[in-house]
């Protein structure tokens, strides 16, 4: 059974789709078979960011309605050496148009065939979010260094925790290094201290991200580039059996974890 990971954030536009696409590719480069599910029904994006929109013939609702088979709908990314597929969202429907059980059945079939099922969740915490998180056993919460994004992420983490999704990882995206130096934005350390979940990576604000998305050439395919390397690193952390520790400048252990560890009193 494959790992099913939901990529979510509460707030929109923080980088969920960008991260799903590039993480999928990087996991593929590590030799895993990966399927990405665009759960943002009605606002189909993942195929564009991947640059495979022209190959989309069917979508998730066609499968659930029995209009085509799952295989008909899965779009293969031929640039990848390992099986890397996308189950596209529909552009014209609404989130509520897919039944929960139908969605779960689809995810289950995918879990049987792929080592990783990445679910790109829509923004918000409504039906589409609930759908995306329903069958996930792990979570990645994407946050930007902004108070509103942090607040939303905290809320989402709380819901994922209640659903017993574990582990829940953090990716801090769009960190403007200039502003960070000038201390004009909230630092990754502060964000991690508040959210208190293991950090997978910190991604800088970089115009190359927008350019690669517009060209449909995900940067994760450029393994020599800084961003490509970063995503390979994130994929390694995610897939390693080792517990995630922040070997870089960002502390994995928040103060609170240290405090917890230090309970020395035992009966």
């Amino acid at each position: 059974m494959g790992e099913t990971i939901v990529i979510t954030s509460g707030k929109g536009g923080v980088g969920k789709t960008t991260i799903t696409a590039n993480l999928g590719i990087s996991l593929g480069q590590l030799g895993f078979s990966v399927v990405m599910v665009d759960a943002d029904i009605g606002l189909r994006n993942l195929d564009l960011v991947m640059g495979i929109e022209k190959k989309v013939k069917y979508h998730i609702l066609d499968v659930s309605k029995g209009l085509c088979t799952l295989d008909d709908a899965l779009v293969k990314d031929t640039r990848s050496k390992t099986p890397l597929c996308l189950l596209p969202a529909s552009q014209s429907h609404f989130k509520e148009d897919i039944q929960k059980d139908d969605f779960s059945d689809l995810i289950q079939s995918l879990q049987e065939r792929f080592q990783y099922v990445l679910i790109d969740s829509p923004a918000g915490i409504e039906y589409g979010f609930r759908l995306s998180t329903k069958d996930a056993n792990q979570g990645i919460v994407v946050v930007n260094p902004e108070v509103s994004s942090i607040r939303d992420a905290d809320r989402v983490i709380s819901i994922l925790e209640q659903k017993k999704i574990k582990p829940i990882y953090l990716i801090i995206n769009r960190v403007n290094t200039e502003l960070l130096k000038k201390k004009e934005i909230i630092s990754p350390e502060e964000i991690q201290e508040i959210l208190d979940i293991p950090l997978l990576g910190v991604i800088p604000e970089d115009p190359a991200v927008v350019i690669s998305a517009n060209q449909g050439k995900p940067f994760a395919y450029q393994t020599q580039s800084k961003l490509g390397e970063l995503f390979l690193h994130i994929a390694k952390k995610l897939s390693s059996e080792e517990p995630v520790m922040m070997e870089d400048s960002y502390k994995a252990e928040s103060l609170w974890n240290k405090v917890k560890k230090s309970f020395t009193l035992k009966k």
């Binding site: 809320r155 983490i157 819901i159 609170w256």
Partner: peptide
């Protein structure tokens, strides 16, 4: 306690952790 969580009690409380914004 994370954003959106609310605890309402008449008891005195010991909370091991933070009370986050929200």
């Amino acid at each position: 306690l994370r954003a959106g969580e609310e605890i309402n009690t008449t008891s005195p409380v010991i909370l091991h952790g933070d009370i986050n914004p929200g």
